[in-house]
Amino acid sequence: MKWLNTKEGGIFLILIALSAVLAVRSPVFLTMENMIDMLKTNVVLAMMAIGMTLVIVIGGIDVSVGAMTALVSVLIGKWMVAFGYDLSVVLLMSVAGGAVLGAINGWLISKIRVHAIVVTLGTLSIYSGIAMYVTGGIWINNLPQAFIDFGRQNLFGIPMSGGTLAIPIQVLFLVLVAAATGYMLKHLRIGRMIYAVGGNPLSAERAGIRQDRVQLFVYTYMGFLSGLAAFVHTSIYRQVDPSAFTGFELQVIAAVVLGGANILGGSGSVTGTLLGVALLAVISNGLTLTHVPSFWHKVIIGLFIVTAVSFDIIQRKRRERRLAKIDVLQ
């Protein structure tokens, strides 16, 4: 019961409420097929949002994530077309490539002391420019069959009344990422350091935490996850579209913020972010299922974000006033 009082609990309740409304309005919503479809569509968003959570917790931001994913998918796409598919090679390439791109971001941000948004704006242009140039804007279609088969795999295969409960393999990746990142944030030293730097950089510095090292790690990890996301995305859609991720970073940031993270740093969690992703997913799915014309989608999501963050801020301010009062009244 106590959990419901936390920020994540609140978001979870909103999620349940929305889902309930949706289940009533559309009979398709709660079907196995729809659920799995939602999962598949949002695995990539979820993975990247998890990476972005760390970035936002340390008070930074990375608007180049869409471009990083695009570039890595172009990289592995071209590789597979030329050299065929080998799971370990391609997977390694994806995460290593992504990590390198992320490390460039991290290195620049930590060394030249310029705000992350400007640096990542620059790398955004560079990475997406390269991706587009190398492909000429054309999609890469002829991926090796072995890869496509890999992407089609499902775990389990339990027949149920609504259909077969078959979880796509990509979800496994997400689960591993979520578990690993959550564990890292809660139980490993690096996790503590990340929260410390985000909460109060000065104190963290005085406590001996090297802010530049933490930044380097966080942005590299973001790149690592972007690379993995590229691998997963390509395995789902079976082709590479170099412009598929344009503007994606905004959705990623929105998911993290909706998940309760403070944009100024210091708070945020994997659970919260996943809930944020779920919220966005349910809203999108709901809008489609209830046949709301597509132009209203953006309006509604935009209004939702504005309302959600406003409530969050108002609550936070109220909490601060209450704390100040308690101090006085005792």
Binding site: I61, L264, G302, F304
Partner: peptide, 15 residues
């Protein structure tokens, strides 16, 4: 209301 500009304009941009 005091919402952070980057987050708010992200929402209003979509709107």
């Amino acid at each position: 209301i005091g919402v952070s500009p980057i987050v708010l304009t992200l929402g209003s941009m979509l709107l």
